[in-house]
Lab assay of single mutants.
Amino acid sequence: MMAYMNPGPHYSVNALALSGPSVDLMHQAVPYPSAPRKQRRERTTFTRSQLEELEALFAKTQYPDVYAREEVALKINLPESRVQVWFKNRRAKCRQQRQQQKQQQQPPGGQAKARPAKRKAGTSPRPSTDVCPDPLGISDSYSPPLPGPSGSPTTAVATVSIWSPASESPLPEAQRAGLVASGPSLTSAPYAMTYAPASAFCSSPSAYGSPSSYFSGLDPYLSPMVPQLGGPALSPLSGPSVGPSLAQSPTSLSGQSYGAYSPVDSLEFKDPTGTWKFTYNPMDPLDYKDQSAWKFQIL
């Protein structure tokens, strides 16, 4: 009977010793046993002879290597770790002494450095960015050149030099007046198309007034536009458009034309069986010896 009264063996659950049927240790109110408190290391007290050895090595170098620390530790009968900690504390003490010396050398008012006064946003004049500046400075420094007289040679050079070769001289006033084509001369031969040399188009003023001019072949195509416009036809070669000034309004060009419109200028042929003959000019830059190549039959 006494065997049943004795408590059973101890069981360990999660490293906790349980005594038989008792489960009081598993209750929430019972805390787990805490780790033992780490003991504080005792402070090391250095003797005068030990301090002399350490100070002598510190005077040589503030960062001794492990071999120098072990050698000193053997002399003063201390572990190497204590020597390492002593050098660490000695360097910190040396830095603190240097900072105190710097503070003593500075004057009393030198510690508080005078800061520059901050400028207020409204006091300083700042350039306004509302208006974009002129990058080319046209509004201040540029002045347009004065327009020359209508009959000045410089204007003629600016007008005619675009179309004339570089080897030719500017046309005088008398020749510029001949550039304007007359109405009857352009409409006299509506079906004849003559190819003149390129030099005649640039230099010869008579080429624009003769039936064999460069633009005589364009007349049949330009004249039928007159009834559609409801007024006189516009002429690209009329009046002052080739003269001194090219800047004319469309209203000033509306009254200039080749001449009176005639039914002869239409595109319809009077004789459907007729042929169109292209007159060959020996001055043509295209060297075609066979003139029969310039004739064709309209079917």
Rank of each mutant, 00 (worst) to 15 (best):
P133G: 06
K295Q: 04
P205S: 06
I138T: 03
D265K: 12
V180Q: 05
G122V: 02
G137K: 02
Q256D: 05
I162D: 00
S203Q: 05
P79L: 09
H27S: 04
S235R: 11
Y4R: 03
P224R: 13
P7E: 00
G243D: 03
L16Q: 00
S34Y: 10
S257N: 04
L171R: 12
D140T: 04
P108H: 06
A207G: 03
G109E: 02
A260F: 15
S143E: 04
G20T: 12
T275S: 03
P127V: 09
S188V: 07
G183S: 01
Q111P: 02
H27R: 09
G231T: 11
S182P: 05
R48V: 07
L171F: 10
A293I: 13
D65C: 05
D65F: 14
Q97E: 09
D140F: 13
Y258W: 09
L246F: 09
T45G: 15
Y32P: 02
R37D: 12
D65T: 08
T61Y: 09
G243W: 12
A156C: 10
M26F: 11
Q96W: 04
R91E: 14
G230W: 15
D265Y: 15
R37K: 07
T47L: 11
T275G: 02
S81N: 04
A15Y: 13
L171N: 09
A174R: 12
R126S: 08
Q28A: 10
F296Q: 00
S161G: 05
L51V: 10
P127S: 08
E55D: 08
D287N: 11
A29E: 01
V72Y: 15
A156G: 06
T273A: 02
D130V: 12
L237K: 03
T154N: 03
P285F: 07
E52T: 02
S204I: 08
S141P: 02
E70G: 09
E53H: 05
G109N: 07
A200L: 13
S292L: 15
R82V: 08
A207D: 01
N77W: 12
Q291R: 14
Q103C: 04
S266K: 10
Q175T: 10
G148N: 03
G151D: 11
R41T: 13
P31S: 10
K102G: 01
T194G: 01
S124E: 07
P79E: 03
Q106Y: 09
K277S: 01
K75F: 08
Q228I: 13
K38I: 09
K75M: 07
A56F: 06
G239R: 15
Y191G: 00
A174E: 07
S164E: 01
T45Y: 08
Q50S: 06
Q101I: 15
Q28H: 13
Q105K: 09
T47I: 11
P236I: 13
S152K: 13
L25D: 01
S185D: 06
D284K: 13
A293L: 09
P125D: 08
G183T: 08
